[in-house]
Amino acid sequence: MNVLEIRNLTKKFGDFIAVDNMNLSISEGEIFGFLGANGAGKSTTINMISSLLRITKGEIQVLGRDIVKENKFAKINIGIVPQDLAIYEEMTAYENVRFFAGLYGIRGSLLKERTEEALEFVGLGDKHKALPKSFSGGMKRRLNIACAIAHHPKLLIMDEPTVGIDPQSRNYILNSVKKLNQMGCSVIYTSHYMEEVEEICTRIAIVDHGKIIAEGTKDQLKSIITDTKETWIGVKNAERLDLDALKGITGVNSVQLEEQMVKIVSRGEINNLNWVIQQLIRDQVEISSVEEQAPNLETVFLTLTGRKLRD
């Protein structure tokens, strides 16, 4: 079953169309990435999924049930990590998580257990009694996540959860997301950091002006631009090179020799660098440099929308 199903979703603010007839489905176990510049409609979509905004047209289903008709069901199964820190600075970490989990109808010893579990999960197990005021940016971000997962949501929506934190905390958070995903939680993830999306998302949608303009795995997205990659290998004694043998390697489309550089164009999804290098070694060619040029998501985004992700 699909965790999330969006059909013809539209959101208007007056005359302005923020989300334009969007269709999307996310199946269970996915980490789904939303890529888009500011104002592209990501947050509006997310806010409609989490019932913060009303739907102008279209429908959203969570676990097969309409979120307007069965609002409570949808809410219980969704956890939301807002872009801005949404915690009470004057309450301890434990009280924060406990309060928000309590809103989801969890009571008594289970509440205590879930609160402790969530704090432990984000690595704040030893900070129960500490006030968020004393936390670093990364710790606050982690607490922000803990508040969203204590009620064990089936779908976790994370809106820029790693803004402005140190690399260590970011890695911690990314690993937590993966771990959560392995535990059976589907995730919607938005970020400005292309590398993060590339690293953790199983599927990605590029959103611009309220529309999904491309969608798929990162390889599928890259293949929109091109499905080949170029490997440039700098060589010292090119005359020893057996070009035909190189062409015979799986995935290689063409080989060209340009002065001291060999340019090998091969299919993007195949990793044949090992074989190429083995061949070069067999030919007793001295390798001075290896560079692979494959499109990344940033180029895909830039090419399709004509804009940079971060303006």
Partner: peptide
């Protein structure tokens, strides 16, 4: 492109902040 055709018409005029369809 590999899987898409992209046709862009761009001008250097004023534009608008929010497009009304």
């Amino acid at each position: 492109l590999n899987r898409m055709i992209q046709s862009v018409v761009a001008d250097n005029g004023r534009g608008v902040d929010k497009i009304v369809k």
